[in-house]
Design a protein around this nucleic acid. Structure first.
Length: 479
RNA sequence: GGCGGCAUAGCCAAGUGGUAAGGCAGCGGUCUGCAAAACCGUUAUACACCGGUUCAAAUCCGGUUGCCGCCUCCA
């Protein structure tokens, strides 16, 4: 039984899909005016795992993640660079796909751009005007927050409270300071579209209401995004969608916590934004996922070098295990994965059913690794009979779990080869040299010339190359 | 000022009433020529502090302290 924490009710609730067997999810995607940072990665990875898990447990998932490709920040940035907004947004959409692809994020069912849905946006604004939730003021159209009784229900705010300490830009055209713009009248040099209210462009909040309605209808199962979007963005979406359509907009609101960098919030002023593409130069994409999924999605998470090194260490442990089990139980073939779902998968589902507890899921994975390593340590009879069946069954489950989390999905040999290649490049070492030194050391060991052997091992260690003398021979690994 | 969150071992972290998952680091051991890897053992009489409810609380309630987020563009 799946339970999800709902921001609206501040409780974990049993999840009941609107249509049996089907889940409709909308997640707010990025405003594409700059490269994606680790905070974007968290949100996208968290909802990627949620969508994968729902699919894996039998739901038909319709997942929509938008791109905001028109807004003040985009216009400003485009002006700075002296290019048009389309060129700018397309560039960063492209980068977004590169970054998220590298992080092994699956594509959503639909990934619409706001500027492709101007007609739907205009229709929605027209409906809000008809229903008395919006008004024209000068060249702009505003949403009248006082016309919507439930305004503030998601963020737990009341208009009166907010007005007391209002830090909102005063706009003479607004009836209430919290009224927000649905349609902005055109300004010179800005992109514009025709509308019943003259040339202009949509406000930020309206696009999500319009696109979610277009792809998913008026009533969604899950709507997600970063915690910061609760107010005003999601509050405003509720006002728009429920105001326009007169029915409940979203059943479950899901919000992920922030990523901090060395205890500090990422911000423009601190200049500490960590971009995904830079992080990936240093760390394996699955290590980034492992790091992100090692905490509960609603908690803040602190990005530090130490945390990333630990994630890399953990990832290597997983691949070392996968490599070992391949030797012990034979190669991982298609047929073997058809096995029935076992205990590990069952426990994984229990854990994920509890508000997507990926941190505990990682604990399960490491626990399983230890148990199976012990079986393999016990001896060669692990290669036959009951033990082998157990190994194969758990491996199949581990693979299923890995496919939900997006961790441990590469062939172990590939993983280690990539790692070696990266280290060799970084340390500017010739692979042939490493292999020659190892051959030399094997000879030294055969002659029981331990001093020589140890000296060679020391030299390689200085190059970040670690040797393992296994019964079947010496292998090397890169740090 | 308004709203909300967090405080668990050296570090990270799960755990919302029944007696502390998991990871990293450390220490001892098995294995090894020695290592590495893996495994075994060990590491919080204890969950910020005070008080309360209960047979029973890290978990619920009240208070205190500290940290953080949102209220302005932000994942």
């Amino acid at each position: 039984m799946l339970k999800i924490y709902n921001t609206l009710t501040k409780k974990k609730e049993r999840f009941e899909p609107i249509e049996p067997g089907k889940v409709k999810i909308y997640v707010c995607g990025p405003t594409v005016y700059d490269a994606s940072h680790i905070g974007h990665a968290r949100s996208v990875v968290v909802f990627d795992v949620i969508a994968r898990y729902l699919s894996a447990t039998g739901y038909e998932v319709v997942y929509v993640r938008n791109f905001t490709d028109i807004d003040d920040k985009i216009i400003n940035r485009a002006n700075e660079l002296d290019i048009d907004t389309k060129e700018l947004s397309e560039r960063y959409i492209q980068e977004f796909y590169e970054d998220m692809g590298a992080l092994k994020v699956r594509q959503a069912t639909h990934e619409p751009k706001a500027t492709d849905y101007i007609a739907q946006i205009i229709d929605l604004i027209r409906l809000l005007l008809e229903k008395g939730h919006a008004y024209e003021a000068g060249a702009d159209v505003f949403y009248a927050v006082e016309s919507f009784n439930d305004y503030g229900k998601l963020s737990g705010r009341r208009l009166e409270d907010m007005q007391a300490g209002a830090r909102v830009a005063v706009d003479e055209n607004k009836r209430n300071p919290f009224d927000f713009v649905l349609w902005k009248g055109a300004k010179p040099g800005e992109p514009m579209w025709n509308s019943p209210w003259g040339k202009g462009r949509p406000g930020w909040h309206i696009e999500c209401s319009a696109m979610s309605a277009f792809f998913l209808g008026h009533h969604l199962d899950i709507h997600g995004g970063g915690k910061d979007l609760i107010f005003p963005h999601h509050e405003n979406e509720i006002a728009q969608s429920e105001g326009a359509f007169g029915e409940r907009f979203v059943n479950v609101w899901v919000h992920n916590g922030f990523v901090k960098i060395d205890q500090e919030k990422m911000s423009k002023s601190l200049g500490n934004f960590l971009m995904i593409k830079d992080i990936l130069k240093q760390y394996h994409p699955e290590a980034v996922r492992l790091f992100l999924l090692s905490n509960h999605y609603r908690s803040p998470i602190d990005f530090t070098e130490q945390a990333m090194i630990e994630a890399e260490t953990g990832l290597e442990k997983i691949y070392a295990f996968l490599e070992r089990i391949t030797q012990s139980a034979g190669p991982d073939t298609e047929g073997r994965n058809q096995q029935e779902q076992g205990e590990l998968w069952e426990h994984f589902c229990e854990t994920m059913d509890d508000d997507f507890n990926t941190a505990r899921a990682m604990g399960l994975v490491f626990d399983t690794l230890r148990q199976l390593n012990r079986i393999m340590d016990e001896g060669t009879d692990a290669t036959n009979g009951k033990k082998r069946a157990r190994l194969e069954s758990v491996r199949a489950d581990l693979k299923r779990v890995g496919l939900v989390l997006g961790i441990g999905t590469e062939a172990p040999s590939y993983f280690f080869e990539q790692k070696k290649a990266k280290t060799l490049e970084r340390e500017a070492i010739d692979k042939a040299l490493v292999e020659r030194l190892i051959t030399e050391r094997v000879q030294a060991r055969q002659q029981k010339n331990w001093a020589w052997a140890d000296q060679i091992r020391g030299e390689l260690a200085a190059m970040n190359i670690v040797l393992e003398d296994r019964p079947e021979g010496t292998v090397w690994k890169a740090k």
